[in-house]
Design a protein around this nucleic acid. Structure first.
Lengths: 96, 96
DNA sequence: CATTTTGATAGCAGATATGCTATCATCTAT
DNA sequence: ATAGATGATAGCATATCTGCTATCAAAATG
């Protein structure tokens, strides 16, 4: 049986343009996943977190379910209240 | 003579709501600064980078000069071509 | 079973970012 | 001096996110 990864690699091999989209979607997904994980770990509902951030629950839900890709400002607001941090890392080692 | 930091701390002490805005602006500024630093380190002009990312130079300029706060998607696109990575870190140590 | 909580979703209006094109001042190099 | 490169900025149309409000199904709780 083929896994999702098999399918994914297949598609990426066929169309590099789509590969780029998939890569980006995966990065966003990873960030959002960390966000959801932290929220639940803190025992917060979407409504709880939303109230803390001063935004509606629908906004949190849309981001968590990947219906929209958040603005950096919105993401930082949420991260702030989750005790999460966004860090810039260099992929290329030793860039001095 | 008062430094900018003195002024900043002063304002933040007076109005916590503004303090939040300042904190966010500083985070965005830090991310953007890292981005500009990497671009120049790679010897790329805004036009070069923009072409690589498939976006207009004006978009790069607007983000670098903080005229707009980028969408996470736009930021990841640029980071991708700069060899930069966005990492989620926990501010609270040992969250297991 | 009844109630509450939770996450997803809808519609709408307003705000903001984006793409595209073009211009401008400044700097650099020939 | 002249031409080219660079970053900032403008206007416009479009796309997208966001806030607000409300509803719904499913799950949890009593």
């Amino acid at each position: 049986m083929k896994t999702w990864n098999d399918y994914k690699e297949h598609v990426k091999a066929i169309d590099p343009a789509i590969a780029k989209d998939i890569d980006e979607a995966e990065k966003i997904s990873a960030i959002v996943s960390a966000m959801v994980k932290q929220r639940t770990a803190m025992g917060l509902s979407q409504r709880d977190l939303a109230a803390m951030c001063g935004i509606p629950q629908s906004s949190v839900a849309r981001i968590e379910s990947c219906k929209t890709t958040p603005n950096l400002s919105t993401l930082l607001n949420i991260f702030q209240h989750l005790g999460l941090q966004l860090t810039v890392t260099s992929s290329t080692p030793n860039s001095v």
